[in-house]
Design a protein around this nucleic acid. Structure first.
Length: 587
RNA sequence: GCCCCAGUGGCUCAAUGGAUAGAGCGAGGCACUCCUAACGCCUAGACUGGGGGUUCGAUUCCCUCCUGGGGCACCA
């Protein structure tokens, strides 16, 4: 937001270096640690160190000398309130009244687009969620869904055109087991409500029956064979029940405010995958060990002539000639670029256990000569475990179902809403409870580094206090309430000045940083940068709220503060929107 | 055996190689005639896993060790 000001100082530093015959060092800007005033800073340690060349010297002292000299030169420049040299740093302070007006004006003008970057006209794809049909949807599956959704939102906000892709696992042994159990014991049954739970129960029952009666394995193989030769009854049953799962997922995606532009189904890639395997064999990249009873494999390290093992060996076709996950992933990657040849990036939001697998897939495609292969990138994330390092697995029964979590979180939120807003219509109370409950579920998974394991426990998942979504939503609601009492009229900008309090400066400062934070989040693909920003913003607003009365003060403070509240509300709303968290109108 | 990730107050997490390592929860104390207390204020609590190294400067980069988690040929 302050590029022009930065350039002025940068060129002054450049002039100084030229005059003094000092090496040229890139000027890096940072925000001044808060001290009641508002500005940016840069340091001269690097320049000082370089100025000594080979000889040793006192760097901090030299840096401070440089800072003092530069500050001296800049003293004549207009447009800054104060320029000072401290401990080797050059601190440049803005005229707070001018800059705060500029920031607030910009937020109010750009409204829901504030903080967003220029459109880049670059397309990329984010594949995420990829749930298995015919299975339950549990809390462990949420991380990919939330992470992928918010990464897509961040990239969109940063200026990219994002395609949101889903890749459901709609076929495989788990589906066959399900079909077997259904055809044998539940034929004709249909789920009426809680579709996903019901689908999961049929699967769990199938697994249990098989454990108890191993002889059923034969019947499973029979179903698999019928599926392979596209037996009409099996195919029709598969199609119908698959749709039930997809309907159930859509219900949940709607509830969670997650949408997709494009569905790729696992079942679509068996054939194309085998075609790629043929291509690999033709080009001598893959080896068929079928004669010795083996599979079709790619010895990636050997092909790359690597000394140490890195990509190891990838099986691309089973020894019985059937496709496996890797086979299909090769075809899927290609299909994405056939559909969208201009993708600058193809992201896969998949858990960390598949890191090697994706490295293998992408490297194999590179060996095949696909120029887009390096544009594929795996975005790994760590698992959601249960206390005691128990992995969530539907076949182990160690799961927390998403439906249960949402139900419980919403119920708790509703209890609080009813307590706080007795006069509100029940319909509105439910709406708020949903926003708060679901926001509370999303936030913890977005606010930590994706390479950190999340341990799910009911107590902390349902704790709405502290660093959590409700805190941010509450700040939004407070701002909203003030504006409502001001009849939702945003006063025009006033020329008159008044001394800003430190709460106001901090708040404006954080609002001003938003565009940079969004770009940073997009560059690093980190949702946590946005949750941090949103939380800081909310905290700064709460601080302002308790310290700075708005409606009861005289002009020009009153108008200026109303404008600031409107800008803060907008900034918080935009942060929440990027996080896919609903901002309720009341709480 | 090889590879990847994590290790920061009691607990859960932050911190573009830079100024005094920040929050939340929990603990103790304070605070409700004032735009909603799902709020705020104060206090205590950290040799950033150990040891080396690079650097003017390391939680951050490199090496090594320890602990925990994960991955390594036909599961997905």
């Amino acid at each position: 937001m302050f590029e022009a000001e930065q350039k002025i100082i940068e060129s002054a530093i450049l002039d100084y270096c030229t005059d003094k015959d000092l090496p040229i060092v890139e000027t890096k800007w940072a925000w001044i640690p808060f001290n009641g005033q508002w500005g940016i800073s840069t340091s001269f340690f690097q320049l000082a160190a370089r100025s000594f060349g080979q000889t040793r010297g006192n760097v901090p002292q030299r840096a401070n000398e440089i800072a003092l000299e530069v500050a001296g030169r800049l003293s004549g420049i207009e447009g800054f309130e104060k320029i000072e040299a401290v401990n080797g740093y050059l601190n440049v302070y803005f005229f707070t009244a001018d800059y705060s007006r500029r920031v607030i004006r910009q937020v109010l003008e750009e409204s829901e687009k504030y903080g967003h970057g220029q459109r880049l006209n670059q397309r990329l794809m984010v594949e995420f969620s990829h749930p298995n049909t015919h299975k339950a949807f549990h809390v462990g599956h949420l991380r990919s869904a939330f992470l992928g959704d918010v990464v897509a939102r961040i990239l969109d906000a940063a200026g990219y055109d994002v395609i949101r892709a889903n890749y459901p696992g709609d076929i495989g042994l788990h589906v066959i087991k399900w079909l077997w159990n259904y055809l044998k014991f539940h034929k004709g049954e249909k789920p009426d409500k809680d579709i996903t739970r019901w689908m999961g129960a049929i699967y769990a029952e199938a697994v249990k029956r098989l454990d108890q009666e191993p002889a059923y394995e034969e019947e499973i193989r029979e179903i698999y064979a019928r599926w392979d030769r596209r037996d009409p009854e099996v195919v029709q049953c598969w199609e119908e029940t698959r749709q039930w799962s997809l309907d159930g997922f859509n219900e949940m995606y709607n509830l969670l405010d997650i949408r997709f532009d494009r569905y790729y189904f696992n079942s679509m890639f068996e054939k194309p995958g085998k075609e790629i395997v043929s291509e690999l064999l033709e080009k001598g990249i893959a080896e068929d060990e079928g004669e010795s009873g083996g599979a079709v494999i790619v010895k990636i390290d050997e092909k790359l002539e690597l000394e140490e093992e890195k990509y190891r060996v990838m099986v691309v076709l089973r020894s019985d000639g059937t496709a496996l996950y890797a086979t299909e992933d090769l075809a899927l990657a290609r299909q994405k670029f056939l559909d969208y040849p201009d993708l600058v990036k193809s992201y896969y939001v998949v858990d960390v256990r598949q890191s090697l697998h994706f490295q293998q897939v992408f490297k194999t495609l590179e060996l095949l000569g696909y120029e887009w292969a390096p544009r594929c990138q795996h975005l790994p994330y760590e698992l959601v475990n249960l206390p005691g390092n128990v992995v969530m697995a539907s076949r182990e029964g160690t799961v927390v179902l998403l439906e249960d979590l949402i139900r419980e979180a919403t119920a708790r939120a509703l209890a609080v809403v009813k307590e706080k807003n007795r006069e509100l219509a029940e319909e509105n109370q439910l709406e708020i409870a949903k926003a708060v409950g679901i926001g509370a579920i999303k936030f913890p998974m977005l606010s930590r580094e994706s390479n950190k394991v999340v341990t799910f426990d009911w107590e902390s998942a349902l704790d709405f206090n502290g660093q959590a979504a409700p805190y941010i939503q509450y700040a939004y609601v407070r701002a909203n309430s003030i504006l409502r009492k001001a009849q939702n009229v945003i006063p025009a900008e006033l020329a008159a000045d008044y001394e800003l309090t430190k709460q106001e400066i901090t708040l404006i400062d954080l609002i001003a940083r938003m565009p940079e934070e969004i770009q940073k989040a997009a560059r690093d693909l980190k949702t946590l940068i946005i949750t941090n920003q949103a939380y800081e913003l909310a905290r700064a607003f709460n601080d302002f709220y308790t310290q700075c009365p708005v409606l009861g003060v005289e002009e020009p403070q009153r108008s200026t503060r109303i404008r600031l509240v409107a800008a803060a509300r907008q900034a918080i709303a935009n942060s929440l929107a990027i996080l896919g968290i609903t901002a309720p109108q009341a709480m």
